[in-house]
């Protein structure tokens, strides 16, 4: 358990009380979020990532507030703590396609580590294709079993299309970013976007980008998505380099894999509902992306 007086002293705060013990602190300088890190390498990566994200995009982000000694972290029993501003006002994406496209373009093209290079790589996501094998699903021959089998066949087709598309893809530098979990990570501070990063390990690839674009399409519509992609393309060349690997990512039946892996933890009905929603989002996104990218080499359908 974090000691309140130690946190206040380290960060030069005069007053403070826990709003959520060990996690959210109310101070004379506003609400502060505390993160506890156990992996020092990950913490250092996040410090660099957030600093460079702010510098490159010009947006505010939840960078590590420094201690009175000028350090970006403070030792605690569990590892290290970092302190961040807690901003709760939501950012509205409405009519902000240019601003947001520029932000995400710079976000996905950001290179934080020296070992990251501009070298082009052939990219294919680490997808467990074994779950698409018929032998892996020898459940009951009831209605549920029939549903699983029907979806498996569709998922397999998607996987094969993704594979075929990927073979024709030009190699591109693979993004290496802090994964975007949701568009709700954008908040508002004095009419400026404040981006709240996740504390996840960095992601290599396009998975969070496809998730973010799917969410955008669902909430803002196709026209808005295209306007955002047009702007994003100026900073993160989707049409020339990243479009096909991104489409490959979107085609892969991740939702089916998650449906299977969720197993017995949830009811079949609940899992089926989530699968149907996510499947529809993927279908709509692939359709929209193909239209925007003007993919003529292969008609892509889900």
């Amino acid at each position: 358990m974090l000691r309140l007086d130690a946190v206040l002293e380290s960060y030069g705060l005069k007053e403070g009380k826990w709003k959520i013990a060990g996690s959210l602190l109310e101070t004379e300088k506003g609400l502060k979020r505390i993160h506890v890190w156990t992996d020092k390498a990950l913490l250092n990566w996040h410090i660099s990532w957030r600093d460079q994200l702010a510098e490159n995009t010009g947006c505010l982000t939840d960078r590590m507030i420094q201690t009175v000694r000028g350090e970006r972290m403070s030792l605690c029993d569990e590892g290290w703590i970092t302190v961040h501003d807690e901003v709760s006002s939501p950012f509205s994406y409405k009519n902000k396609e240019k601003e947001t496209g520029r932000f995400f373009g710079k976000y996905y093209s950001l290179k934080v580590e020296d070992k990251q290079t501009d070298e082009d790589h052939a990219y294919f996501p680490d997808f467990n294709a074994e779950i698409l094998d018929r032998k892996a699903h020898t459940g009951k021959r009831d209605k549920n079993g029939e549903f699983v089998e029907a979806v498996r066949k569709e998922a397999l087709m998607r996987y094969q299309k993704a594979k075929r598309l990927n073979e024709k893809a030009d190699p591109a530098p693979v993004p290496f970013v802090c994964p975007v979990l949701s568009l709700n990570q954008a908040r508002l501070v004095y009419e400026k976007m404040y981006w709240v990063n996740s504390t996840e390990k960095p992601e290599s690839g396009y998975r969070s980008l496809s998730r973010m674009l799917g969410e955008w399409l669902k909430h803002q519509g196709e026209k808005s998505l295209f306007a955002m992609l047009d702007e994003m393309d100026s900073y993160f060349p989707l049409k020339n380099k990243h479009g096909v690997p991104l489409l490959t990512e979107c085609l892969l039946p991740w939702e089916f894999a998650d449906f299977i892996e969720a197993g017995e933890n949830q009811s079949f009905g609940a899992r089926r509902k989530v699968l149907a929603e996510r499947w529809e989002t993927s279908r709509a996104l692939v359709k929209a992306l193909s239209k925007w990218l003007d993919v003529t080499r292969e008609q892509v359908k889900v």
Binding site: K29, G30, L60, D85, V189, Y190, E191, K192
Partner: peptide, 15 residues
């Protein structure tokens, strides 16, 4: 007025 751009966002970074 502190709400005006870009003052608020700048001063935010100084708490």
């Amino acid at each position: 007025d502190v709400q005006q751009k870009p003052l608020g966002a700048v001063l935010f970074q100084y708490d």
